[in-house]
Amino acid sequence: MNDQVLVLGGTGEARRLAAALVARGVDVLSSLAGRVADPALPEGAVRIGGFGGAEGLAAWLAEHRPRAVVDATHPFAATITASAATAAAAQRTPLLRLQRPGWTPQPGDEWRFVDSLTEAARAVAGFRSVFLTTGRQGVGAFAELPGRVLVRSVDPPDEPLPAGATLLLARGPFSLADELALLREHAVDVVVTKDSGGHMTEAKLTAARELGIPVVLVRRPPLPPGVPTVATVEEALAWVERSEVRPPAAGGGPRR
């Protein structure tokens, strides 16, 4: 086993964790999926590109044998989170899930939670002007919406847009003033987003509250069972410091 910590990243929490680990002298490798054209890079070593599913990640863990893995990917990156759980269990590699809390409704909010993008599309089918902020993946679920649709994402979606769509390419954080102006400019009467949590894109929810606009939120996918989960970078740092010793490998004594 080497002393390296593998951080599955792509989020602000992952970047802050990598920076804190580097500052402590920890050998950290951040892995980015490569789905964003110009990602914000963390401190320390970086690899870009997937591992090839759970089998590929398990093979990588077997070859490199890091001290621990921290899955700090997006709350909706369900595939890599499931792969990390399967691969880490197979290789007896300590695994932690770092996931920021979801958003909490405030007085005045009119929120409706749904379980999928398809449900969200059905929920907003009767509205005149939809603000869609669910990322570039899954936009095709809204392709049949009849009204105006403002689609905001970091990179261009790779699925068909609704006929009445306006595409806005932008990366947060977004200010409350800008979100209010955007909702008014496009006469938005419903907002659709995922329950991503965090402050970088929260202003749209505050703007919707102030303007009396309803919000449809897609619930997060469930986490794999048995994986310890923390909500803050500080908790993740403390866990890494406790991960010095790896559990014994299946079938016998320690690996050499």
Rank of each mutant, 00 (worst) to 15 (best):
V192K: 11
S153F: 03
G9Q: 01
A141W: 00
D158P: 01
A236L: 06
T86C: 11
S243H: 05
G108K: 07
D195Q: 13
S243C: 12
D195G: 10
L95I: 05
L61Y: 01
P105S: 13
G44T: 01
L223P: 02
E185A: 15
A72L: 04
M1H: 10
P157G: 14
G50Q: 02
G226H: 02
L223H: 09
A203G: 04
P254D: 00
F76H: 10
R148E: 13
V149E: 06
F127L: 08
S196M: 11
L168D: 14
T229M: 07
A54P: 05
D38Q: 15
Q4V: 12
P39N: 13
A40P: 11
L41A: 04
S30T: 14
E63K: 07
L96M: 04
P254A: 00
L29A: 12
G102L: 09
S31R: 12
G212V: 11
E55F: 14
L237P: 07
A33H: 06
A68E: 02
G9F: 03
G44V: 02
T232R: 03
A250M: 09
G253R: 09
L237S: 07
R15Q: 05
H64M: 05
T166D: 14
L205E: 04
L57W: 04
D158A: 15
L96D: 01
A238V: 05
E13L: 09
G108M: 06
A163D: 12
V46C: 07
P225W: 00
V149W: 00
E179A: 10
R128F: 06
L96Y: 02
P248E: 00
G251E: 10
V227M: 02
V114W: 01
R92Q: 12
T11N: 10
G172I: 07
A121Y: 02
L237R: 01
R209T: 13
V46D: 03
H64Q: 13
A90G: 05
V28L: 04
G252Q: 04
T193Q: 10
S83I: 03
R100I: 10
S243G: 08
R171S: 11
G138I: 08
R256K: 10
F174C: 12
H199F: 13
A238M: 04
P214C: 06
G108Q: 07
S31G: 08
R184N: 15
G197E: 08
E210F: 02
G49Q: 03
L183T: 12
V149K: 01
A250L: 12
A120N: 00
L180T: 15
V7F: 04
L98G: 05
V46H: 09
W103K: 10
P105G: 13
R256I: 12
G164H: 04
W60S: 10
V154G: 07
R136M: 13
K194A: 12
P105W: 09
L117E: 01
V151S: 08
A236H: 05
D3L: 00
D38A: 15
A77N: 02
A88C: 14
